[in-house]
Amino acid sequence: MTTNNTDKELSQSLATTASLISQGAQDFDFLMGHWTIENRKMLKPLTGSDQWESFMATQHAQKLPAGIGNFDDFVPLVWRPGFIGMSLRIYNPETDMWSIYWLNNKNGGIDASTGMLTAPVVGRFENGVGSFLGADQFDGKAILVRYTWSDISPNSARWQQAFSSDEGLTWETNWIMQMSRVFQ
């Protein structure tokens, strides 16, 4: 009789774990669809400057097959004519972590020295806020970059990027996106 209870408890535990994993894989479900984006971007990050530019963009996000992640396009309306960006988000159910890659039509998101994708930011959502951190380069210097997703509702969300040149002791927010859903 003990074996049956143990098997039943194990089955329930596995079902609960699978449910939690699938919930993590749905963290970005709010983002699927079409959006308009009000962008506010610092002109010269990490220089002490406080000059910002503002511009509009559109975005369309969709899921990848088998629940492994999602991707979106980022199309500015008049900012940097011809520029197209893309976020590729991959979910790892073993770690309950997301890896987010930024790609664009300028360099493909490829590290010229290795021929591989540039390093992602990695993280997860906790209490409705997504925090993702990674190593990067800016103007030839090693930095940390952080993406934060917050203020998420069915029809709006906020994303911001911050850089740290002192290993995370201080952060400078340099790009803010306020997103509004487009109903079609």
Rank of each mutant, 00 (worst) to 15 (best):
S54G: 12
S150I: 02
T118E: 14
R124P: 03
T58N: 11
W149N: 06
E53G: 13
T3N: 11
N5Q: 14
S165P: 04
P76T: 10
M86V: 06
D50K: 14
E126C: 06
G134S: 02
G140E: 08
A61K: 01
M116V: 00
P120N: 05
A119F: 04
E167A: 15
D50S: 15
F163N: 08
W79N: 15
K8Y: 10
S22G: 00
L77P: 01
R40Y: 03
S164M: 02
I90Y: 04
I100H: 05
D29H: 09
Q26F: 00
D151A: 11
Q178A: 13
G69T: 06
D7Q: 13
H60L: 05
E172D: 10
L46R: 06
Q178F: 03
S156L: 01
N107R: 10
M86L: 13
W171S: 05
G48N: 05
Q184G: 13
E94F: 10
F55E: 06
G130D: 03
S22W: 02
G140H: 07
S49W: 03
Q178Y: 08
Q62P: 04
T2W: 05
N92R: 07
Q12V: 11
R89P: 06
E94K: 12
S99I: 00
M116L: 14
S13W: 11
R146N: 08
D111V: 06
D139I: 09
F71E: 13
L10W: 11
T47V: 04
A61Y: 04
D73F: 10
Q160N: 15
G85F: 02
N70F: 10
A162R: 03
S164T: 06
M97F: 10
A57W: 08
E172C: 04
M177S: 11
P76G: 06
S150N: 10
L77E: 13
N5M: 11
I84Y: 09
T16P: 01
